[in-house]
Design a protein around this nucleic acid. Structure first.
Length: 414
RNA sequence: GCGCCUGUCGUCAAGCGGUUAAGACCUCGGAUUGUGGUUCCGAUAUGCAUGGGUUCGAAUCCCAUCAGGCGCCCCA
């Protein structure tokens, strides 16, 4: 036998037995997002590399070490590691700022990140996400979070934890960053290697370091005081408290997590994650936040925006398995030509039917029917002659001859 | 990139230095030439990820390679 070829590391087939769960995710996304006024957008799965470098940010791990980048005709192209940058690119390119705000878009599709695969993490994975452009008020933040919660509820996921935080605006964050750097300066040599790198590149990411020695340092009173301090400026604080009061009124439960720092550079003010305890160590199903300067940074008009993305594989691992449906009927007949005709009639009437294409014996056909279908439609010589079909209910074993014309509407009474 | 764990039929597995490599499920065939789902019978790994080594003897022990899983980092 020839050598077999396997799926590439970190990728997976979505097999027929899992398809019903994907259909559920996709159907509910379409239904619910549509109710909230979102329109679907589909952008290419690869873009010019510069889009991600400028959009996602070149201090992020996503851009630094996780991108699938390739060269073609002197252009550097990259398989999208996330879709916000692509959607923003399209928003700008198609002049969507001319549309009446807010512009609400949603998407679903594969994303690519070159990481070591593990539970809840693949190199090709799928996200559903939403992006809202044009509203700077906290109403947008609240609506977007509510939408996430309601989408999760529609999937039967009610008890997930919503964590929120505010990163402030570029101005107040700069002050905060400097304070952190200042107070940590004496400890610099004691920080782990990663943290020493983060110190210059992105001090906010120091805060969720998992190394014990670093955690200890962050626990020191004078350092903790700075980390925990409410650094955000008055207007950012106002925005944040407005969001919280909206969430309270909407009865959306949340936990404030001051250490919640997104790894994407473009976020400002509101960031949030939704987590599950049943996912192993990759426990975030949803992550998002506000990115008010991204549109401008990518060459568009200054446009506030906010969005989130959910990992579809992670969602699927949280919802119960959906058993595949049986066929409505399986036609049992020794005459393929007659079976073809009957199958067409029933299919046209909306039934899901199959019949034997392999010339199997009558008993084998019936055996097959009992495994895959709710009803057997038995079509023998007599039945063909009289324009009848014998319908057998395979769970009750009752059988009746029905007129072929009314078959599709009456078979369920057998 | 680093750490830990695991590779026996399509699937789940037993096996712990000497077996004819259990068993179950799935699939296929038969009992059953127009009545299934129950039952009974039968078929299906000359081979235990691959390559070396140790041994009289290896699926079992050792090494390497490959593959998979999990964790760190980071994220959905």
């Amino acid at each position: 036998m020839a050598k077999i070829i396997n799926v590439v590391k970190g990728t997976k087939d979505i097999l027929p037995q899992d398809a019903p769960m994907w259909h559920l995710l996709e159907k509910n996304a379409l239904d619910i997002f549509t109710k909230y006024g979102y329109k679907e957008i589909r952008t290419p799965i690869f873009e010019v590399t510069e889009l991600f470098a400028r959009g996602v940010g070149d201090t992020t791990d996503i851009v630094n070490k996780e991108m699938y980048t390739f060269e073609k005709s002197d252009r550097s192209l990259t398989l999208r590691p996330e879709n916000t940058a692509g959607v923003v690119r399209s928003y700008i390119e198609n002049s969507m700022s001319r549309l009446s705000a807010p512009v609400k878009l949603w998407y679903k599709g594969p994303m690519f990140r070159y990481e070591r695969p593990q539970a809840g993490r693949q190199r090709q994975f799928h996200q559903v996400g939403v992006e809202m452009f044009g509203v700077k008020d906290a109403t947008a933040d609240a609506e977007v979070i509510l939408l996430a919660v309601n989408y999760l509820k529609s999937l039967g996921l009610n008890d997930l934890e919503v964590e929120i935080n505010s990163l402030g605006c570029p101005e107040c964050r700069e002050v905060y960053k400097n304070k952190i750097k200042e107070v940590l300066k004496p400890e610099f040599d004691n920080l782990c290697e990663d943290c020493q790198n983060r110190y210059e590149k992105n001090p906010l990411r120091l805060l969720d370091c998992k190394v014990d020695s670093c955690k200890e340092i962050f626990e020191k009173p004078e350092i903790k005081a700075v980390i925990k301090s409410d650094f955000i400026c008055e207007s950012c604080a106002g925005h944040y408290s407005k969001l919280k009061s909206y969430l309270d009124e909407l009865d959306v439960k949340y936990i404030e997590n001051k250490l919640l720092v997104r790894g994407l550079d473009y976020y400002n003010r509101t960031v949030f994650e939704i987590k599950s305890n049943n996912l192993g160590s990759q426990n975030a199903v949803c992550g998002g936040g506000r990115y008010d300067s991204l549109v401008k940074n990518l060459g568009g008009e200054d446009t506030p925006a906010i969005g989130w993305a959910m990992g579809m594989e992670r969602l699927i691992s949280l919802i119960p398995t959906i058993e595949p449906k049986k066929l409505d009927g399986y036609i049992v007949s020794n005459s393929p030509a007659d079976a073809f005709k009957l199958a067409s009639e029933l299919r046209d009437a909306g039934l899901v039917v199959e019949f034997d294409l392999q010339n199997k014996k009558f008993t084998k056909q019936l055996e097959k029917a009992s495994k895959v279908a709710n009803y057997a439609f038995i079509l023998g010589e007599d039945e063909v002659k009289n324009n009848m079909v014998s319908v057998k209910n395979l769970s009750t074993s009752t059988q009746k001859q029905l007129d072929r014309k009314q078959l599709w509407s009456e078979y369920k009474n057998v």
